[in-house]
Amino acid sequence: MGILNITPDSFSDGGCYLDPDCALKQARNMVEQGVDLIDIGGESTRPGSTGVDEEEEVRRVVPIVERIAAQCAVPISVDTTKSRVAHEAILAGAEFINDVSGLRFDSEMARVAAQTGAGLFLMHTRGRSDIMQKRTDYADLLGDVCRYLAEGIELAYAAGVEEDRIAVDPGVGFGKDAAGNLEILRRLAELHCLGRPILLGTSRKAFLGKILDRPQPCERLFGTVATTALGVAQGARIFRVHDVAPNRDAALTAWAIHPYV
């Protein structure tokens, strides 16, 4: 899953793809590198960020989705917590919804997914971006993550979303400190109790910067690639990344060693 942020303030590529021509060029670049799915977002969810209203998010995202859907032969996911944004992006050509709130921020999101037949990625977090890093203490981190995601799955089922349209994401970097992120990576296989494919999103994140003493996100490629390979070994199936080609190579090599059963 290749990341394409149409935002001025995302932690790594904010401001890079606001111009539609630049966004399309990046999408084509990811296609050339072997991307399977492009995840387009119009609101930064980095720790400490403030939200944007749905009108602005629609303005940023929908024209880009429409243009890329018309010119690139890969599925598109819309990264949003707003049901209206998701619905309009799907009408423009997106096929998946990536909801970092796990259906908690907008009660209509599950209905939109069900009515449109969109695939649905459910992530664990603790509150919105402006407060989530103030709540990083857990008595049972993996237990809390699994319970939250299980409840999100039940919300999706109740709205009519089919089981095979759902995948889960433990939310690395969302309401977790560096130690918590590492614990998730060590125990990632425990998410198989949910019975759904696992999406892993570690690309260029701050905990890698702390481990490697790499303050700039663009310096964290090798750390990201390591987490991709280790994620494969624990059964993750989808990897949300900025750098498609090296992570794809890492995943394919790791899958050759640890074939998925």
Rank of each mutant, 00 (worst) to 15 (best):
S77A: 15
D39Q: 09
A139D: 15
F121H: 03
S77T: 09
R196F: 07
T125W: 14
A236C: 11
L199C: 06
A189P: 03
I257D: 02
A113W: 11
A206L: 02
E219M: 08
V52F: 11
C146G: 12
I131N: 00
V35W: 05
S101F: 07
G235I: 04
G102T: 01
R126L: 06
R67Y: 00
V74W: 00
L18A: 04
D21Q: 13
R240C: 05
E57G: 03
S107A: 13
Y17I: 07
W255E: 15
I3K: 02
D140Q: 09
D21R: 11
G117E: 08
Y148K: 00
L91G: 03
D53F: 06
A158L: 10
T253L: 15
V168C: 02
L24A: 13
G175C: 00
D9F: 12
L91F: 02
G119D: 04
T136F: 01
R237D: 02
L122N: 07
I3R: 02
R220K: 09
G117N: 07
T253A: 14
C72A: 15
A92R: 12
R104E: 13
G102H: 03
M109W: 12
L212Q: 11
A92D: 13
P63S: 10
L155P: 01
G15R: 14
S107I: 06
Y148V: 03
T7V: 10
E57W: 09
P8C: 05
R28C: 14
Y260P: 03
A156F: 12
S44I: 09
A245E: 15
D13K: 11
V244F: 08
N247M: 13
G127A: 04
G223Y: 07
P47K: 08
L149S: 06
A70G: 12
A159K: 13
G201F: 00
A23G: 11
A94Y: 09
E108W: 04
A89G: 11
H192M: 05
N247C: 15
A245T: 03
R204E: 03
N29T: 15
I3E: 00
D177E: 06
H87D: 10
R104Q: 14
L155D: 15
G119R: 14
Q216V: 06
F207S: 01
G235T: 07
L4H: 02
A94D: 07
S12L: 07
F239P: 03
L4R: 00
G15I: 13
A178F: 08
S10I: 04
V100L: 09
N5M: 12
F11N: 01
E108Q: 12
K176Y: 01
V145S: 04
D106P: 14
G15Y: 14
K205N: 05
H242L: 06
M123A: 01
S129Y: 08
Q71K: 14
